[in-house]
């Protein structure tokens, strides 16, 4: 059974001006089991990681990441985004078993 994927946390700046390059920061709870550790009986603990993260804005790709076992547990991922207009960011985390966590984050522009 795959390890639980927690609720993701996503943060954008409180105030966003049109055309501003903002930083999108994300954090998700996950053990990121490498597949190289052994349990107390000496058996290999099977690999179980978040293997991909994608972020789209109104359906258009913004940023994505392939994760390997060398990414620390509870993956922290941050990247810039140029906020040209209001709309929705959709972020998806996918584990080795293909299970996903999705989060939609509205981008609102300050007048």
């Amino acid at each position: 059974m795959a390890a639980p994927i927690g609720q993701p946390r996503v943060r954008l700046p409180a105030q966003i001006k049109a055309g501003e390059v903002i930083e999108i920061r994300t954090l998700i709870s996950h053990i990121m089991e490498t597949g190289q550790r052994r349990n107390q009986e000496g058996q290999i603990i099977p690999r179980d990681i978040i293997k991909s993260f994608t972020c789209t804005f109104e359906g258009q790709p913004v940023f994505s990441m392939d994760l390997h076992p060398a990414i620390s547990a509870n993956p922290y991922i941050a990247f810039p985004f140029k906020a040209e207009r209001a709309g929705n960011l959709e972020m998806v985390w996918t584990n080795d078993a293909g299970e996903q966590r999705k989060l939609t984050q509205a981008v609102r522009l300050a007048e």
Binding site: G6, Q7, R9, R11, R25, L27, I28, S29, A73, N74, Y76
Partner: peptide, 12 residues
């Protein structure tokens, strides 16, 4: 507080 992974526990 955002980068600090302990806040995943705090929220739980």
């Amino acid at each position: 507080d955002f980068q600090n992974p302990a806040f995943l526990w705090v929220e739980e």
